[in-house]
Amino acid sequence: MSEPSSPPLLELERLSCHFPIRGLLGRRAGTLRAVDDVSLSLREGEALGIVGESGSGKSTLGKTLGGIHDPTDGVIRLAGEPIATQRSRRPLSVRARLQYVYQDSGASLDQRWTLRRSLHEPLVIHTDWSREHREAKVREIAGAVGLAEEHLDLYPHELSGGQQRRAGLARILVLGPQIVVFDEPTSGLDFSVQATVLALIRGIRRMFNLTYLMISHDLNVVGSMCDRLAVMYLGRIVEIGPTREVLGRPRHPYTRSLVDSLPRIGGPRVTDRLGMPGEPVFPADMHQGCGYRTRCPIGTLACTRIDPRLVIKEAHGVACLEWRP
């Protein structure tokens, strides 16, 4: 998908993350395929959105990238070099270059530390800079995320919710990461605050030429923040492509139903039409065929037997047997 001239900054090759399901007496009763055979790549400066409903595996994918889960199979490459394999500790230098931001990034601040100390800490661990050098960096980044200098002497509980998120972002940015994984960066925020947080992420993207992966259940959020979108269903990528294409001309029936389910203020009511029936099945219960077939309006008999592969045409990929170019 990427041009040969610019090698992808991040590359996932057939990445899987499975969890054992324990039954009676801890015996292995099955396998939960949270992430199953996912391949994608990300060029420098690009923003990729990963969208899916609960249970689609989008968060597990993000956590596997962030080094919180070990992949069961497959390779993650950062600038061409493999960084995550099964059961190997990720080197410190890699962790600084690829950062994972939790849902409530403000909550990951130490409650008993001033903001200054929290922001210095990553630099103490990852660099051998002098105190003055670190302080200069901390002030620069705090300014970039819109925190005033006097905020640095405050404790997390003295900051508002929005300021805490800014502080959490600053903590990620002091290390100058090449790639940031945002996991539901605005969940639980009011719309008015969400918009300011998204504007902040847009601002730092421009400022630092940031490459990021944004995971969200909200199609509107990733749609407004990302160049490309990947739609996940039951651990698989069912569609991937440029945001405008995926939202404007969805190729997978699941993407279509997601797009059609979004309320459009001022437009016709979505509830006037029929909503998509059913809910996703439990990932462990799927054995064969397309995972979406239980809800699919256009499924055929073949869909129960054949596992659709991701077919990419004109940078727009879809995993559906029924799709024709």
Partner: peptide
């Protein structure tokens, strides 16, 4: 509040302050 809603192709504005 309406201008704060995220929408593909448009940068939501948000409301400053608490």
């Amino acid at each position: 509040l309406l201008a704060s809603l995220p929408e593909p192709g448009r940068e939501a504005i948000g409301i400053s302050g608490e």
